[in-house]
Structures are given as C-alpha cells and as structure tokens.
C-alpha cells in the first residue's frame, strides 16, 4: 500500500477521533448521572442509571411524550424546508447548466440566490420577526390593503410559525444546494451529453437517463446533509420564537429542547440522554405520527 497516503489518512482519522471521540463518550457517560446546577450550587454527578431516560419518556399530563412531540416538530419543519429546497435546487442547477437554454446573467443570479446563506441565521430570523410582528410592515400592509381588519398574530398560529421557519430554511439553503448540484453536473463528462443528443434523446430522457444517475452520489450527499441539518435545526426557530417554540411548543425542535437543559440548569445528565437518543434512534418517522 502506498505508505505516504495511508499515513496521512491515519493522521486525519486520528485527529477526527481526538476532537470528537472524547466529547461523545463524555456525553453518553453523563446521561447516566444526575448532574445539574441550582443557582450556584452543583448537584451531582450522582449515578442514577436510566432515570434520565425514564424522565424523557414519561408522558405529561395530557398523555403525550414530550421528546417524541419535539422529534415530530423537527421532522415536520425539516420536510417543509428541505423538500422544496432540494427540488428547486435541482431544477435551478439544470437550468443553469443547460446548453440549450443558455440562461443569461447567471453570475448575477448565482450571487443573489446564495446571499441568504451568508446572513447569519440569527440575524435573518430577527429580520423576519420584525417583519411579521404585530406592529411590523406585513400587518401594516395587510390593513392598508384592506385584506384584514385586525392585526394578525402570526406567531400564535402553528401553521404560520412553521411556515415562516420552513421559508427561512428554504431561502437560506437553496442557493447553497443549487451550487453543489451545479458543480456535480458540471463534473459530468460533456461528451456523454453530446452523445445522447446525437442519439436523438429528448432533454427529459437525457435528464433521467444520463444526468440523474451520474448525479446520484451528489444528490445522496445533499439529502443526507439536509437530513442531518434538519435534525440539528436550532438557530432559526430559537430566535424566531425566542426559545419558546410557540404556539404551545409546536415549533420546539430537538436541539432547542437540548439547549433548554444546557442553559440555567446546565443539566448534563438530561442533555446527554437527549443527544444520545436524537443521534442514534431510528429515523424520527415514528415520531412524525406523534406530531399533534
């Protein structure tokens, strides 16, 4: 085996291990302990076995299990943002790289659709919050146009809050995804496209028979990273709802739930249990059914 590359491979892997392994082990270890702060006094770490996990899965007074509800929220928010995002990005990537369509002004469009990705998620959410607040311009506009006779509280309705979060995620990431897919398409050998045109294939056929199969690895990458990003969704709903997940905690994601425990109480016990469950449990499709 070529020793030079293998040794550098080993070096990268060991660095990965150094920076991520101890923290992960620490996290799982913490989940078996009762470990939190009360004001300035530290309680624990006392070994409590699976008590944290039991607390996680105890149903509340209305019978629903909180963590499953938040997992359901996370999935709902992810689907609403990622599906349009990937589909639109795929469409745009094809438009931009198509020789037949020859879209002008590509540099401008590409710069513009990437812009939302540059704005920090928290600043973007603050902007949307002020736009849609009760005294914000959207409400003012609706009243002026006569489409509404009273102030619409966008943050008290599950549909609008989730819609705004999905919209923001879509705007922030579809430019990024388009560029990724474009790079993927541009890496496909041009002679293949020429060959298919000579063979008389229509553009749809070329897309499904040539582009898509060769693009599959990159598409897989896009979907998986979108999935991971969705599972870890935090900044946007946190800032938009000020950490409350209103209305009625229907926009609280798993990481927001985790963050609640890492705040005042620095409850590493519960935090460990939540993070271990979120990153290792089967896809939250089961919890999708629990989403109210």
């Amino acid at each position: 085996m070529p020793s030079g590359v293998i040794s550098s491979l080993r070096r990268s892997l060991s660095l990965t291990r150094f920076f991520t392994w101890p923290p992960q082990v620490l996290t799982v270890y913490n989940s078996f302990f009762e470990n939190y702060r009360e004001g300035l006094t530290q309680v624990g770490p006392n070994f409590v076995g699976l008590k944290n996990y039991a607390t996680l899965f105890t149903p509340d007074s209305s019978g629903s299990v909180d963590i499953l509800k938040y997992a359901g929220n996370t999935v709902a928010l992810w689907v609403g943002g990622a599906v349009p995002q990937i589909l639109t990005a795929l469409l745009l990537a094809i438009f931009f790289t198509s020789c037949r369509l020859r879209i002008k002004g590509q540099a401008f469009f590409k710069a513009v659709i990437y812009l939302p990705n540059l704005i920090m998620a928290s600043a973007f959410s603050m902007l949307f919050y002020t736009l849609f607040s009760n005294v914000g311009p959207v409400n003012q506009l609706l009243m002026q146009l006569g489409w509404s006779d009273h102030v619409i509280d966008f943050f008290a309705v599950k549909f609008t809050v989730r819609g705004l979060i999905c919209l923001m995620n879509f705007l922030m990431w579809f430019g990024n995804t388009t560029i990724l897919l474009m790079a993927g398409i541009m890496g496909i050998d041009q002679s293949l496209f020429e060959a298919s045109t000579i063979d008389g294939a229509s553009s749809l056929q070329t897309f499904f028979r040539v582009t898509l199969p060769l693009l599959t690895p990159i598409l897989v990458y896009t979907i998986i990273t979108a999935l991971i990003g969705g599972l870890q969704m935090f900044d946007v709903p946190q800032v938009l709802t000020n950490g409350l997940g209103t209305p009625n905690r229907t926009s609280t994601t798993l990481i927001m739930y985790l963050n609640n425990y890492l705040g005042t109480s620095k409850n590493y016990g519960m935090a460990g249990a939540i993070s271990w469950w979120s990153s290792s449990s089967p896809p939250c499709s089961a919890s999708w059914c629990s989403s109210p």
Partner: peptide, 10 residues
C-alpha cells in the same frame, strides 16, 4: 411546569 423542570430540576 415543563419550563420549571428544565430550569430547576430540583
């Protein structure tokens, strides 16, 4: 109550 549990487990 959930909020209280998150902030002050005791």
């Amino acid at each position: 109550y959930k909020y209280v549990n998150e902030k002050y487990p005791s």
